[in-house]
């Protein structure tokens, strides 16, 4: 009697795990399908590029302020902390290298992607979710206008285009922030700061790889935001939950992808 009870409990738990697993996989499939359709129907977002431009304005330009301000502070903190450690080894000139490599390789793409998910990703999810909840997508479909071509694809490309630009600006502004702390404030030699940096930052291995990372993050973050909005239950609660999920899933995906990409780039 006891044993059969225990068995049912275990079976129920397993069923729960299986159910969730199937649901997740199913959602992944739906997301992949949306991704595929967004690519297939993206012709219009290039033919009528002003649709995409408009979305670049809302995702890219609108994120500019938060990106620039955060980058500035991140760069300054990096320089301060780096100086603290480096001066113990008498190599405070290497501070430029430290700031530049940290920003170009990791912090630029990753922090930009995290901020992007919070600033632009949530906006995309909420907008699409509300368009769905208020039947705007349905209305579009009934007008014989494909919502994937008209709504999803331009936002997708806008995100993919904006992210590397934002990450590049982040890295550059961060380095300027680091420069401000290192050179005028701490008194590291101006020439050494830049020349050490130039000697140790490789264009192909560091800068281009950083750009590749941010491009991949751009695809992931935008697609997650679009999918969560598109898939949100058409209620106030559904949209708010989807918005939260966008931030959580995007952040985790970016961090996991970063590890994978970094390990691939190390091998090469």
């Amino acid at each position: 009697m006891m044993q059969s009870n225990l068995l049912t409990i275990i079976a129920n738990k397993l069923r729960g795990v299986g159910h969730r697993m199937i649901e997740r996989t199913w959602r992944l499939g739906v997301g992949a399908r949306l991704f595929g359709l967004a690519i297939v129907y993206s012709g219009e977002s290039f033919k009528r590029f002003n649709l995409t431009l408009r979305e670049i304005y809302f995702t890219g330009v609108m994120s500019l302020l938060i990106i620039v301000v955060s980058a500035f502070f991140v760069g300054m903190v990096l320089a301060l902390q780096g100086y603290n450690t480096l001066q113990k080894y008498g190599s405070s000139e290497a501070i430029g290298v430290l700031v530049a490599l940290a920003l170009v390789r990791e912090l630029g793409p990753v922090v930009t992607a995290l901020l992007f998910a919070g600033r632009a990703g949530t906006a995309i999810t909420a907008e699409i979710g509300l368009m769905k909840a208020t039947e705007q997508l349905s209305a579009m479909e009934m007008m014989a206008v494909n919502p994937i071509a008209r709504v999803i694809a331009p936002r997708f490309w806008a995100g993919v285009i904006s992210m590397p630009i934002l990450a590049t600006i982040f890295s550059m502004v961060g380095i300027l922030g680091g420069y401000l702390v290192a050179v005028p404030l701490i008194g590291v030699d101006d020439g050494a700061f830049w020349s050490q940096m130039q000697a140790n930052v490789d264009f192909r291995l560091d800068i281009v790889n950083g750009l590749i990372k941010s491009l991949v993050f751009g695809v992931a973050c935008t697609m997650i935001a679009l999918f969560e909005g598109f898939d949100a239950p058409p209620t106030a609660e559904g949209v708010s939950r989807a918005t939260t999920r966008t931030v959580v899933i995007s952040s985790l995906t970016v961090l996991a992808l970063d590890f994978v990409l970094t390990s691939f780039m190390m091998v090469v």
């Binding site: 509300l130 208020t134 705007q136 349905s138 209305a139 009934m142």
Partner: peptide, 15 residues
């Protein structure tokens, strides 16, 4: 659908 026009319950205007 190009032969059809539809008025949605709450209008469904593009906000």
């Amino acid at each position: 659908r190009r032969k059809m026009g539809m008025l949605f319950q709450h209008g469904a205007l593009f906000t």
